[in-house]
Amino acid sequence: MTTETVFTPAEAPAPKQKSLDFKKRFATLYVLLRHPSARLGFIIVGFLILISVFAPVIAKYKPTEFLDSGNLKPGSQYWLGTDPMGRDEFALTVWGGRVSLLVGFGMAAVAIVVATIVGMIAGYYRGWVDDILSLIINLFLVIPSMPLLILLSAYLQPSNSTVILTLAFTSWAFHARIIRAQTMSLREKDYVAAAVVAGENNMSIIFRQILPNLINIIVGGFIGLTIYGIAASTALAFLGLTAMDQISWGTNLFWAQNGNSLLMGAYWVFVPSGFLVALSALGLALINFGMDEITNPRLRAERQLRKILKGTKFQRVRITPVVRRTDPSSDNPS
């Protein structure tokens, strides 16, 4: 998400020779897991993925079964009550994560691949290639995506894959623009010049020299897109524009709305699915936030400065610090 991109894999804890290779390879992940907000984010997202995967084990009823009368209050039999059609709301909620998360992650994967390729090519080649690609990127940015999404969904046969594709189609442009800008600045770096001199061809330079240095932007973009994808697919389902035979957090909300649950005061039909959508957004945002702080030395320095100044009379600093604490005894967040 940030444009500051000096990516230092930080100090990999120097342990036994054997495991060094493994730890080095996953150094980023280690660093990320040690960051408090990123760790909380991983726990939240991991929890959501787990309940979706183990939905059949967790929920004692099938989400498709019409068990009882509609809009029943939560109780010992139906933990979150029943929906307007008499299905178990708890089962619907845990099962709903499957489609919602799948569509969210799937759409983000498609969109980020398109964004990366278009962004890198536009930024690397410049000239008329960039002019055309930038025009396309800007067109997609300026045409309002939600109305376009609704229009596309109205014409296409609804299914998970069409939802993934339409969402990706309307959301890749923003990240393509960021990646393009970053590629343009990376292109000026000496190692790219060295690769040109060494006779590497353009594709190899783009994918072997530039791509690895874009990784943190790409991962950040992927996470941001997932947040958008989960929310937007939920919104589409809520409008009844996705496959209605599926169970997702959005379709749960659709049936709740259709069955006038709110009018009858059955808030328990609405709250769980909406809450989980927000929770997934929160978890993913926390991971992104942690990553930002790790890959952006400025934010990291700021955090350290705050720690140093704690308890002194200089608590309010307005400038962005550039100092780095080198005291090894401190618990360095990086």
């Binding site: 947040i227 929310a231 939920t234 919104a235 809520f238 909300l253 709305q257 709110l262 808030y267 609405f270 709250v271 909406g274 959508v277 927000a278 957004a281 929160l282 945002a285």
Partner: peptide, 13 residues
């Protein structure tokens, strides 16, 4: 972080 329409539903309720 909440979807806009979900906040709207809660407010409406």
């Amino acid at each position: 972080a909440f979807p806009a329409f979900f906040l709207a539903l809660i407010t409406l309720f």
